[in-house]
């Protein structure tokens, strides 16, 4: 894989004060690839995901998206972020705007689409995530799973090159996890490049091209899902898997 790299991280280091949260991380994500990042809490996987659109700054190393190094804060960074969709654990839908306005806002502000054009696209996307009848509600009136699907539609509305998912199902009831995972599965089948931080091992097995296992700020294993789940190489991964697969 990774013949045509879309995201490239090399020698990335990040500190929170004394804490070295990302230690010499190298990672390449190819176009059309689905990379699932797993690991114990505090291993730096969310931080890694957030560095890819510079929601977290890094101390050293380089990150490039589609051959272009991440710019400093400013207009160029905003332009690049529009190409990188992001879905958050806590949904982060704009609380004061309707579902439709949530999906349309950045299309008009960033992509410069006309309002009716943006709304038309938003309705298409809401239909795709199965929420076309919720367009006029406020986020607080939706269930968690519905909110997260709106958030996915909102990110897709920018026609991103890659989608980052930062624990998209961790704040959801078990019932709602599936409706979100189904949307993500569909995206993966449609060939979207995805980086997914998750604890959903089932999703990792079925949708991922590669599984990246992180522990203590380092990438410990970078394997196919089959290889990782059936024959983990490191003790750290064996230990992790034995704990989560026991139930």
């Amino acid at each position: 894989m990774a013949v045509d790299p879309l995201i490239e991280l090399s020698g990335v280091n990040k500190y929170y004060g004394e804490l070295h949260v990302l230690q010499d991380v190298d990672l390449t994500v190819g176009r059309g690839e689905v990379v699932v990042v797993i690991g114990p809490s505090g291993s730096g996987k969310s931080t890694l995901c957030r560095t890819m659109n510079r929601l977290e700054t890094i101390e050293s190393g380089t990150i490039s998206i589609d051959g272009q190094p991440l710019p400093e804060e400013g207009r160029a960074l905003a332009t690049l972020r529009a190409e990188v969709g992001m879905v958050f654990q806590s949904f982060n839908l704009f609380a004061h705007k309707t579902v439709l306005a949530n999906v349309s806002l950045a299309q008009t502000k960033v992509r410069g689409r006309k309002k009716d054009e943006a709304d038309k696209r938003s309705r298409e996307l809401l239909e795709r995530v199965g929420l076309e009848d919720q367009a006029d509600k406020l986020p607080a009136q939706l269930s968690g799973g519905q909110q997260q699907r709106v958030a996915i539609a909102r990110a897709l509305a920018m026609d991103p090159k890659v989608m980052l998912f930062d624990e998209p199902t961790s704040a959801l009831d078990p019932e709602m996890i599936n409706e979100v995972l189904e949307v993500m599965q569909q995206l993966a089948r449609d060939g979207m490049t995805m980086v997914v931080v998750t604890h959903e091992m089932g999703f990792a097995r079925s949708a991922a091209n590669r599984v990246v296992f992180m522990a203590d700020g380092r990438i410990v294993e970078d394997r196919t899902p089959e290889g990782f789940f059936t024959a983990p190489e490191s003790d750290r991964a064996k230990d992790f898997l034995s704990k989560i697969l026991k139930h």
Partner: peptide, 17 residues
């Protein structure tokens, strides 16, 4: 909540937007 601003920025909106 901080996530509101992060979501907006992640969509490519500028600081003033």
């Amino acid at each position: 909540p901080k996530g509101q601003g992060e979501a907006a920025r992640s969509l490519g909106m500028t600081f003033s937007q």
